[in-house]
Design a protein around this nucleic acid. Structure first.
Lengths: 197, 197
DNA sequence: GAGCGATTAATAACGGTGTTACTGTTGGCG
DNA sequence: CGCCAACAGTAACACCGTTATTAATCGCTC
């Protein structure tokens, strides 16, 4: 019929990996499709036939980032002290963010013209913090947390973690404080605040 | 000596205002120096002689955003219930962010190659939350909060507020929740968590 | 086996960006 | 009056994402 396809899955993976490496240490703004194509020794056409456009490429990176994120949170296993599990999930959350700042940013921060997550991606975000919601539900069953919508308590913890991590990543933390200590103390404060009276 | 200066303070203000309007409703990425100059009916040279480059322009916008932010927080006056003051500061914080999402982003989120705040800007950020630190100090004096570094407690509250606001602005909030309620409940939980036992 | 047609991929072009070099204008002073 | 220095606008440069065009390559038919 026609010539052999070289814009295949293998090339797709090479592009994803190379793009992830660039985004990982310099952010989405520093990712150039022309440079990316040149680095992988193909043409820009490949990016467009495989991903549609730059947003499509970033969307694939988003999925990859989410996969790593979920995997990291999954390493925190449940115990019979759900409140403590929440704290440990928070620690894992911060560790992932600090280790992969730009991948973390793709998921939660970088809202530019270049990339706005599709609605389906956004709905997936809820799933990524499923372990947290689960811990809250177990904590409620164990009488460690107030009753009510577990998503509300989970969002509280998530927000606190995300906020402090964001401030840390953007360099907005006030100087002279031990950030790790503040982070843990905040998680504990939130958990304590949601305790059953 | 030479021809009359037209790249003066008045032009600077017109550029700032026009740029702020664009960033306000479309973000820093949508700000083009060429368009900006054309809108104000001058040349790109004006932007470079007045601000140095795009980062310099954004730095000026940062200062303007911070000024508005400080002014908004200043409308929350202190009462004899510092813990309640913290909650109300948090509400003001969210109101500002929702009303000026892109200006808020310049201060706390948009870390792109285009603009990284100078060290002096970052040190100013600490000052902007001075009212919060003040409320915490008063709360400690009134026995409402645990003793210790007030900055730690303030950072806790700030982080929680920033985190939830960020999630809300980026559209990452789980559906089916009343965000305003969650926000207030979280602030209360953090404040409760830092209560003196 | 040669030629054709379809499918694929690289190249070139378009309109945009930030930035800088250049050119021309404009004013005060000798 | 003419010069010269300060100034502002224009054009150029090197990029960017994207798209249209062109070239190359394979399978099938004759």
């Amino acid at each position: 019929m026609a010539r052999l396809k070289t814009h295949d899955e293998a090339l797709r993976l090479r592009l994803i990996n190379r793009a992830a490496a660039t985004v990982f240490d310099r952010g989405t703004a520093a990712l150039s499709l022309r440079r990316l194509a040149a680095d992988v020794k193909t043409s820009t056409t490949a990016v467009y036939s495989l991903f549609g456009n730059k947003a499509g490429l970033l969307d694939s990176l988003y999925r990859e980032a989410a996969r790593l994120f979920v995997a990291r949170l999954a390493t925190v296993n449940s115990t019979d002290d759900p409140a403590a599990d929440v704290i440990r999930l928070g620690e894992a959350y911060r560790e992932y963010a600090l280790a992969n700042p730009h991948l973390y940013a793709i998921m939660f921060a970088d809202r530019t013209v270049e990339y706005e997550p599709t609605p389906e991606r956004k709905s997936e975000v809820g799933d990524t913090i499923a372990p947290l919601v689960d811990a809250v539900v177990r904590g409620q069953a164990a009488g460690q947390f107030k009753s009510g919508q577990p998503e509300v308590i989970a969002l509280s913890c998530w927000g606190a973690a995300h906020g402090l991590v964001s401030l840390e990543l953007s360099g907005n933390e006030p100087p002279g404080l031990d950030i790790a200590d503040c982070y843990e103390a905040t998680l504990r404060a939130v958990v304590t605040g949601w305790r059953r009276d």
